[in-house]
Design a protein around this nucleic acid. Structure first.
Lengths: 144, 144
DNA sequence: CCGGATCCCTGTCGATACTG
DNA sequence: CAGTATCGACAGGGATCCGG
């Protein structure tokens, strides 16, 4: 099985190595704002305006929203539609490819919501005993 | 349906708003290195050493690997085992929660590999007509 | 030697102000 | 309304040093 592992390693590197183009795709999707954008478009199931997205994605800046939308549009996951009215109206909708990607990213959001309590507990437990050593350092200023 | 949308918006904000703890979970998972770490542990289906992970995740720095492993350990997705031998041996393995998360992140990796060609085409098409204006600027240095 | 902490530097991100 | 421009802050990468 050592041989199996060597082959497995080669296979792994082939599709995950630093020069594999698929990494560039992962790096667009493995991003919280991209995930939230796809999630919103999927949840509402219709094109959304720039300002609607900004309201939905609390805390995002205009800059990051623009940047994220550009990246997703460039990769063919969303489509940008400009209506030359006044005031201007720009809508972003999912392409078929974006719908597929949205299913995967939504799964992550939903799993996070479902397991947040358990994870918060784990965090608290972890922090409880890793902060302890730090306190010890400051507790004996007696011999100065 | 305006009312439906208002309710949908409220629901959305409730689980995706800036103060929802689930965001902190998403922000751990929506990260390329976390995704690759979970992917590797899932692919090899056994605990991996620090140096094995570093080799597998080409391009990661020791610092980011350490940081990513700490974050995943803190959230209870991986477990750290130290064998006090010489040279030291530290292994990281998936917890049951980590196995679940790994399924979701692996889905993203695999989808990226499956659709990389189509996405690269979309990128090329996008770049083709957005770079055109830039070339025009540098093409007439005659009157200097 | 392996696992990891620290320092320094660069690129990205967030907040604000301004334009078509 | 839908962006772009600019600046300060902070996270990420690279090299070096440390503990076991």
């Amino acid at each position: 099985m050592d041989t199996n592992e060597s082959m497995a390693l080669a296979d792994w590197i082939a599709v995950n190595g630093r020069d594999c183009p698929s990494r560039t795709v992962v790096e667009v999707l493995a991003n919280k704002w991209a995930l939230y954008v796809l999630g919103a478009l999927r949840r509402f199931d219709r094109p959304l305006r720039f300002s609607e997205l900004r309201r939905l994605l609390e805390g995002i800046t205009q800059k990051m929203l623009t940047q994220t939308l550009r990246a997703l549009e460039r990769d063919g996951l969303i489509e940008r539609a400009v209506y030359p009215t006044v005031p201007p109206r720009v809508e972003y909708g999912l392409t078929p490819l974006g719908v597929e990607a949205g299913r995967l990213t939504s799964a992550i959001s939903e799993w996070s919501v479902a397991n947040v309590a358990q994870i918060l507990d784990a965090r608290a437990a972890y922090d409880a005993h890793s902060e302890q050593p730090l306190e010890r350092i400051v507790t004996s200023p007696t011999n100065a």
